[in-house]
Amino acid sequence: MYFRRSIVLLLAILLRCYQVNAQNNNQPPSLLGQKSILLNVGTQGVGAEFAYGVLPNLALRGGLNFIPFKAHNVFKISGFNSTSNLSADFYNVHALADYVPVKTASWFRLVGGFAYFFKAKGDIRVIPSDDYKYGDLVLTEDQIGYVDLNVNWKGLAPYLGVAFANTFPRNKFNVSFDLGTYYLNKPKADITGTGLLEGNSSQTPQFQSNIKDYRWLPIVQINFSYKL
């Protein structure tokens, strides 16, 4: 329900932006020399950017984003009663180019660029949740141990996407949207275990194989701009 309301709100804002642009678009604005700062929130977390128009139809954006994330019990291994603690950290600095392909539709932009993810990892700790017995012996948590699944995408990632609404506010503020995706580095995955689960490191090659195509990081982002 919440998600549906968010989508409706997003579409309403988009429509409003388009209407405002249409009203003001008697003469398409040049991006050259314009500056703004942006705060954003989306699937790559929260971040900030500085945008500068380098050509009449091209602006550059540079900034950083981060998303520290923790959750419990979002991960299950079939047939194995367990709890899981997940942490995901994606920190990047990025440089993007916003190109307005159609002068009369400056609210639509093609966006390309790169990000360097200096932190891009997901860690899951799986802890058996049952009171495990070994024969007639009841095992302690330390004896049973836990399994850690770690994935790391650290490195350079290209970005391609589109953006809606003007890069630079006509007045002081505006709201714009980014839709796109990063193509992340090939992930390095490993499994480690402790206690009776120590032998699970042998499952690393299978895990690496399963995770190797997890490279697309989609971006859905809302930007709040302030014109300098």
């Binding site: 699937t43 991960f75 997940l86 120590e198 032998g199 299978q206 995770i211």
Partner: peptide, 23 residues
């Protein structure tokens, strides 16, 4: 969470064919 991790857009389940190894 769904957007960030699941839509990292892959085909295989991360735990597919992974066994729990017990000493």
């Amino acid at each position: 969470w769904l957007l960030v991790m699941l839509t990292l857009a892959a085909c295989k389940k991360p735990t597919e064919n992974i066994k729990i190894v017990i000493d």
